[in-house]
Design a binder for these strands. Structure first.
Lengths: 229, 229
DNA sequence: CGTACTGTTGAGTACTGTCAACCGACGTGG
DNA sequence: CCACGTCGGTTGACAGTACTCAACAGTACG
């Protein structure tokens, strides 16, 4: 059986070297914009006209419910492609917002759609981008359904650390509320989970924004009885 | 703003008339198999060699964790394409199992990958299938994060009803445990939610397996305070 | 220096999971 | 034909988790 841990390892489909798909964004067809923190890149309900690529900074994809509540569907950092999953002639089902100051490139969706059939390399980039999105969403879904609060937070920190590739302290660009809305937890529970993880020596913190994972040896997740073997 | 309800309505990307993509499955290149209930079609960890299409019956895609627990990632009925989201040269990250007796067609993944660049219609089918999967997963994710138990169950029944298109009683092919694993709830809570929905006149039941939605006028979801406007 | 915002922590409540008993349908075997 | 065991579903009692409300600390900013 191939467990969730194994999936984690194989999850990242290589973003690949500078291929034609990515170079579309920096070509003459693409535009580059600088955004300040909390700027809105696209609003939920907007017509799908562009596909975006994050060059630097972090963005969040948010879904707003009718009653005005927000849910963070995903955070995306440098290198991420955003918008291929949206239907070509439809509307955005999420808003995309800058968490930190960002540099974001975009190209017309129609350009990609036009080039895709005639250029296998671009096609490949599109399909990889879609598959990667499915895989990440699925992992997110499983986590939400199975893990208790502290484990969700820990799992989030692991993932974030891993993306950053740093062994030292990592700075979280997003606030507790954002994390809560991503993990399906209240801000307070996220904060309590940080404290609990710190107290149980699973992470070290430096202020509220910086953290470091501790001793992988002791990092077997502490599951409640229901999830124990 | 485009609320979740609106998304629901526009979610289903038309599965399209008999196009070349779908006809691949029934062509000489495809194979058809009949499966009895609870048969396994693919196992998590298997190499990705085929893509499947459900002709009749219902299947579930399950993820097994290292500790042996199962989570249902999705249920899929007639017409569903399964496996395009899996990486071409990777392994299945879920098992696919027959919930009821099923007829399932399959074609080699490599065939689709080969034909995709040269045939825009097939390409279109693939991309639509991927986008549809992303959209459904996202809706699932939002539901799991926001809704309390009874609302999740109700939302599941609505979705299932809608797929069946029937106004009368609908038979659920899957058991309470399956539903629980899909919604991130225990079997008991699912059962209690059915009872609560019946008591509050939101559904009618006929035995344990058949249900009918009642009076759409009164079907504004009853959210707890935290989610009220 | 006051205000606003983020984060932390405490107290009480509500929800959901676990454990357990029970019911009814079904199939098997005596 | 009936006794029995199994399985899925339901319901109750209880416990644990996470949410809400609320107070408070630290920081940034005007």
């Amino acid at each position: 059986m191939n467990g969730a841990a194994t999936r984690q390892a194989s999850r990242l489909i290589p973003t690949s070297q500078e291929d034609k798909f990515l170079s579309l964004f920096s070509s003459a067809h693409g535009t580059t914009q600088k955004l300040s923190a909390s700027a809105t890149i696209v609003s939920q309900g907007d017509k799908v006209t562009s596909v975006y690529r994050v060059v630097s900074g972090h963005v969040r994809c948010c879904a707003y419910t009718e009653d005005g509540h927000r849910r963070v569907v995903c955070f995306r950092g440098a290198g991420a492609i955003i918008g291929m999953g949206q239907p070509t002639h439809g509307t955005w089902n999420t808003s995309v917002e800058a968490v930190t100051a960002c540099v974001v490139q975009s190209v017309a969706r129609t350009l990609i759609d036009d080039r895709m059939p005639e250029d296998p390399e671009i096609l490949n980039g599109v399909v990889r981008s879609l598959q990667s999105e499915i895989d990440q969403q699925e992992a997110h879904l499983l986590m939400m359904a199975v893990l208790p609060a502290s484990e969700r937070v820990f799992s989030f920190l692991e993932e974030f650390s891993r993306q950053r590739g740093s062994k030292g302290y990592v700075a979280l660009p997003m606030c507790r509320r954002d994390i809560g809305e991503y993990l399906g937890l209240s801000m307070e529970t996220v904060s309590r989970s940080f404290s609990a993880l710190r107290d149980s020596q699973r992470i070290e913190t430096l202020g509220a924004e910086k953290f470091r994972l501790l001793d992988p040896a002791s990092q077997a997740p502490r599951l409640p009885d229901c999830h124990a073997a």
